[in-house]
Design a binder for these strands. Structure first.
Lengths: 171, 171
DNA sequence: CTTTACCAGTATCAGTTTGCAACTGGTTGC
DNA sequence: GCAACCAGTTGCAAACTGATACTGGTAAAG
């Protein structure tokens, strides 16, 4: 109600919505890790979010229309969180942030490989990945023709696992 | 020293650096408003940042190498803040955030017009603007040939002023 | 040369947010 | 029917935020 905006600038408004240390990480985990349940987001979080913060951020992401919620028919207690179109369209923001972080910050190899590929892939790859997200989160048929090879999501995941495996072998 | 990272993920690391409600607004004002002095950033801030927060954020932006500081020869007390290459390369992040905010949030017309143009202009326009920023902040000669028309920065500013003028006339 | 305006911050302190840890109330699988 | 799992909620100390006042100095005007 009394939530007054500091200004009507699009950058400011975006920051008021997702400009904190956790919201975009939740979106990231839903996008790239396909975490859809509260417990998944909680326990598989690389950064170790705490449950009250997760609950609070999910509430605002829901209020903002960035994610949606639905019953999980397989389990009376479970709910499924999905990205909305608005949430899916945060991908380019995340991709640019990932690219910048990869270039300038002290990124670990296994967690940086996705950023590298996504950055090299550019807007075309992002659009393809967003189409895949529309399929898994919105239940939409893909507009774009399915490419011959594996999905963008699968390629990113495979590249990540390859690095993890190599590092494990090296010890 | 004891500043431990939550994870080595590029998105997380980026958020740890600029994932708060003010840092990117300071960068925005330096980029699009050419605010270079403390007082300019303080008093011309659309959102009304307070001096302690501004001082604190400038300190971390300096620590992170996103902005640099130099004496202003014209005034013994003034310093000039400039964007580094690393800071200039935050432009695509800001542009994507601006585009998303413009599309989904309650942006005012005069503050949204730059976002609209920048979004429509795409990566090519961003690259051109970044070259202009390298000129004004790094003192570099432009690599790209100077286009016939006015600068991107000038075009954005002119579009903003046009909207302001029209709204003033209307009432 | 002295008064006023401007400059870059710092200090203080109340209010808010964060985040760990423990807990609630329920469901599912064995 | 009992252990494990589910989605959160609660309590509380510590950290962070932000409005306001203030410091110590420089520049410009009269």
């Amino acid at each position: 109600m009394t939530e007054q905006k500091r200004s009507g600038c699009p950058i400011n408004l975006t920051l008021e919505v997702v400009g904190d240390k956790w919201s975009l990480l939740i979106v990231r985990d839903m996008m790239f890790g396909n975490r859809r349940h509260f417990r998944e987001l909680l326990t598989k979080s690389e950064e170790g979010i705490s449950s009250n913060i997760l609950a609070d951020r999910l509430k605002t992401l829901l209020d903002q229309g960035i994610v949606t919620w639905a019953d999980d028919p397989s389990h009376k207690q479970k709910g499924i969180y999905s990205l909305s179109e608005q949430g899916i369209e945060l991908l380019p923001v995340l991709a640019q942030m990932a690219g910048w972080g990869f270039k300038y910050l002290d990124v670990t190899e296994e967690l940086g490989i996705r950023a590298k590929l996504l950055s090299e892939g550019g807007p075309k790859m992002w659009a393809e990945f967003m189409d895949e997200l529309r399929e898994t989160h919105l239940g939409m048929r893909r507009r774009r023709k399915r490419k011959a090879g594996p999905d963008v999501g699968e390629r990113l995941q495979a590249a990540y696992e390859k690095v993890v495996a190599r590092k494990a072998k090296q010890g």
